[in-house]
Amino acid sequence: MKEFENQYKALIDESLHSKDSSDLLKKVEHFTNEVIKKDLLPEDIVEIHKSYVQKLDLDRASILKTFDVLKEITSGFGYNYRDYQQLVDRMQYHDKEIDLASRLQQTMLKTEIPQFDSIQIGVISVAAQKVSGDYFNLIDHKDGTMSFAVADVIGKGIPAALAMSMIKFGMDSYGHSQLPSDGLKRLNRVVEKNVNQNMFVTMFYGLYEELNHLLYCSSAGHEPGYIYRADTQEFEEISVRGRVLGVSQQTRYKQQEIPIYIDDFVIIFTDGVTEVRNEAGEFLDKSYLLDMIHKYKHMHPQDIVQLLYEEILKIQNPEKRDDLTILIIKRVN
């Protein structure tokens, strides 16, 4: 405080003798910025000014001249407050926008879990913030088939929520089951035409056929899925690959056909699971997650995904959280 008091007195002295007002104003501006950084109050400066001017025993004209310094400093406080208020207003507007996007997601992206005799389904999707960049959908076509998708939108906020709502509408509007390669081709056109060019979508698209217990699947740049084989107690990586949605309308997607046997699992993640970092900043080994699934293989898939999520929370660095989604489909007898 004593240092600032001496600096202010020096400015007063300079205002009384200096003829270069532009140089003085620069010094006053710099002093004001330092005062604001140190959280000094305007009344502290006024008190210093009053005390020092009384000691100087100045005439009326000189006293009025010293007020030029005080005026500039108090104006700086005013500008700082207005900047702060504008920042608060912008933050409040941003919060309202995020709340709107969150409500949009909850309303438009709500998905019912289908019920089948021969498969059990478990899914969990948790946003790191109010609005998630992850998305999943499950559709019972009432003809013995189920379409499902897990997606990750590279983007946040209302644009991401709207992009996901378009994808869900695109899937739901087909009205019948279709092969994943065709589904991704159609969705790719929707994303490429209607979504911001800087926003892309990764997606794993599957069709489960209950009659023959076949999984048809395609991928648009998404994390690889896995099949747990109960017979060998080993995990197989689903090898199908493809380009992310929204890059080119001409993209075509490959498709894989996989038989699913009793007690086998289909496992799909988003990168919020596969790229989990611990407190030391190290990535969680994917085999750790797969070992947990193997450990709890006797449980219902919904219990498994919940346990996986709770384990991730224990390990994960809270400052490095990302949206995460886990989908497990298990064939049962």
Results as ranks from 00 to 15, higher is better:
residue 177 S to L: 08
residue 177 S to M: 01
residue 177 S to Q: 08
residue 178 Q to G: 02
residue 182 D to W: 10
residue 182 D to T: 05
residue 183 G to A: 13
residue 183 G to M: 12
residue 184 L to R: 05
residue 185 K to D: 09
residue 185 K to W: 02
residue 187 L to H: 00
residue 187 L to G: 10
residue 188 N to H: 10
residue 188 N to C: 06
residue 189 R to S: 10
residue 189 R to L: 14
residue 189 R to N: 12
residue 189 R to V: 08
residue 191 V to G: 14
residue 191 V to W: 13
residue 192 E to G: 07
residue 192 E to C: 11
residue 193 K to C: 12
residue 193 K to P: 06
residue 195 V to K: 02
residue 197 Q to F: 11
residue 197 Q to D: 14
residue 198 N to L: 01
residue 198 N to D: 09
residue 199 M to H: 04
residue 200 F to T: 11
residue 201 V to M: 03
residue 203 M to Q: 03
residue 205 Y to G: 00
residue 206 G to I: 00
residue 206 G to Y: 05
residue 206 G to V: 03
residue 207 L to E: 04
residue 208 Y to M: 03
residue 209 E to C: 05
residue 209 E to Q: 09
residue 209 E to A: 08
residue 209 E to V: 02
residue 210 E to R: 05
residue 212 N to I: 01
residue 213 H to Y: 08
residue 213 H to D: 02
residue 213 H to G: 00
residue 214 L to E: 03
residue 215 L to Q: 01
residue 216 Y to Q: 01
residue 218 S to V: 01
residue 218 S to I: 07
residue 218 S to Q: 06
residue 219 S to V: 05
residue 219 S to R: 00
residue 221 G to Q: 06
residue 221 G to M: 00
residue 221 G to D: 11
residue 222 H to W: 03
residue 225 G to C: 00
residue 226 Y to L: 06
residue 226 Y to S: 04
residue 227 I to W: 08
residue 227 I to C: 06
residue 227 I to P: 07
residue 228 Y to G: 03
residue 228 Y to M: 04
residue 231 D to L: 13
residue 232 T to I: 14
residue 232 T to K: 09
residue 233 Q to S: 15
residue 235 F to D: 13
residue 236 E to I: 09
residue 237 E to F: 00
residue 239 S to W: 02
residue 239 S to A: 12
residue 242 G to L: 04
residue 242 G to R: 01
residue 242 G to P: 04
residue 243 R to M: 14
residue 244 V to D: 05
residue 245 L to D: 08
residue 246 G to W: 06
residue 246 G to H: 14
residue 246 G to Y: 13
residue 248 S to F: 15
residue 252 R to D: 13
residue 252 R to S: 09
residue 252 R to L: 03
residue 253 Y to N: 04
residue 254 K to Y: 03
residue 254 K to G: 06
residue 256 Q to P: 03
residue 258 I to H: 10
residue 259 P to Y: 01
residue 259 P to S: 00
residue 259 P to E: 01
residue 260 I to Y: 00
residue 260 I to R: 04
residue 261 Y to P: 00
residue 263 D to N: 15
residue 264 D to R: 02
residue 265 F to G: 10
residue 266 V to Q: 00
residue 267 I to S: 01
residue 267 I to V: 12
residue 268 I to N: 05
residue 269 F to Y: 11
residue 269 F to T: 08
residue 272 G to R: 11
residue 275 E to Q: 08
residue 276 V to L: 00
residue 278 N to I: 15
residue 279 E to D: 11
residue 279 E to S: 14
residue 280 A to Y: 15
residue 281 G to S: 13
residue 283 F to P: 12
residue 283 F to H: 15
residue 284 L to T: 07
residue 286 K to H: 09
residue 286 K to G: 12
residue 287 S to C: 10
residue 287 S to G: 01
residue 290 L to C: 09
residue 292 M to H: 14
residue 293 I to H: 09
residue 294 H to N: 15
residue 295 K to H: 15
residue 295 K to M: 11
residue 296 Y to R: 13
residue 297 K to Q: 15
residue 298 H to F: 05
residue 301 P to R: 02
residue 301 P to F: 08
residue 302 Q to L: 07
residue 303 D to R: 04
residue 303 D to Q: 01
residue 304 I to D: 12
residue 304 I to N: 09
residue 305 V to P: 00
residue 305 V to Y: 05
residue 305 V to L: 03
residue 306 Q to Y: 12
residue 308 L to H: 10
residue 309 Y to A: 03
residue 310 E to D: 15
residue 314 K to Y: 09
residue 315 I to N: 10
residue 316 Q to R: 10
residue 316 Q to M: 13
residue 318 P to H: 10
residue 318 P to G: 08
residue 319 E to F: 13
